[in-house]
Computed example of a mutant assay.
Amino acid sequence: MLAAALASANRLTVITNSVGVAKLIGDSNVDHRVYMVGGAYRADTEQMLGSASIAHVEQYRADHAVFSCGALDGDGTLMDFDLEEAMFAKAIIAQARSATLIIDSSKFDRIAIAKICDLAPITRLVTDRSPPLHYVELFRANNVELLVADDTP
């Protein structure tokens, strides 16, 4: 999990809507600053979401946004199956100078109901397996750095 790796980094400032991420990084023995975004609590995902969370995140400016999505279509459209999660992802991307999308390979060639964005604001994409070739070409054409965490079948 990325949050566990970040917890051991030096002096981060983290803005999150995830209770689990806030706790993991906040409870580490490193001098981090953690800002928990307010909003409506969703027990199923342990996240704060809704219009209040979007208004809250819009008060910040970040060097980097790290997020996930539920689907990535063949044309490079990022989507989610939950409208509130998609709206929150869109808001954090807008507040950051760069953005990293972290998805597993099952998200490629999927369609979901709520659009987040296209590839334009995405700096890098991290996934568990090499995507189909048309995605590699699409990422290259959109200046998205592709990082494959584990490329073993």
Rank of each mutant, 00 (worst) to 15 (best):
A114L: 08
T45D: 12
D128W: 06
K107T: 05
I92G: 00
F67E: 01
G76Y: 08
D151G: 13
R110L: 11
P132N: 04
K23M: 15
C69G: 01
A99C: 14
V148W: 05
D128H: 06
A43L: 13
S98C: 11
S98L: 06
Q95N: 12
F139W: 04
S130N: 12
G50T: 06
A91N: 05
T127L: 09
V30K: 15
S53Y: 05
D44A: 11
A55H: 14
S8C: 12
L72T: 03
T77A: 15
D31A: 13
I92F: 07
D44W: 03
V136I: 13
D63P: 01
P121D: 05
V144S: 01
N17T: 06
A40Q: 15
E46A: 15
I15N: 00
T13P: 01
A5S: 14
S106E: 10
A7T: 07
D109A: 08
A141R: 13
L83R: 15
F139H: 02
A141Q: 14
S8N: 11
D27S: 13
K23E: 14
N142I: 06
I25D: 00
F139Y: 06
R33H: 09
V21W: 00
L133M: 12
I122N: 02
R97D: 14
T13N: 08
A5Q: 13
H134K: 10
M36L: 15
A99L: 04
G70S: 07
A22Q: 05
V21Y: 00
C69V: 06
P131N: 12
A7M: 04
G26E: 01
A141W: 10
D31F: 13
E137N: 13
A120M: 11
F81G: 12
V136C: 12
T123L: 05
V66E: 00
L72S: 01
A62F: 02
H64I: 10
M36H: 09
A96D: 05
K115I: 11
Y41N: 12
C117V: 05
S106W: 05
N143Q: 13
I54R: 10
A94W: 06
L2K: 08
H134W: 04
I103E: 03
K90P: 01
S130M: 15
Q59C: 14
D151A: 14
S68C: 12
S106Y: 07
G20W: 12
A86R: 07
I116L: 09
A141V: 08
R129H: 09
G76L: 05
R140I: 00
A114R: 03
L72F: 07
L119M: 11
H64A: 04
H64W: 12
G70N: 04
L138W: 00
I93E: 04
A65P: 00
L101W: 06
E46K: 15
L2R: 10
L78H: 03
A112F: 02
I25H: 02
A7L: 06
L24C: 08
K23Q: 14
A5M: 12
A9F: 10
V37G: 02
R124F: 02
T13F: 00
A62L: 03
V136Q: 11
A112N: 08
E137S: 10
A52P: 03
D44Y: 05
M48C: 15
P153L: 15
C117M: 09
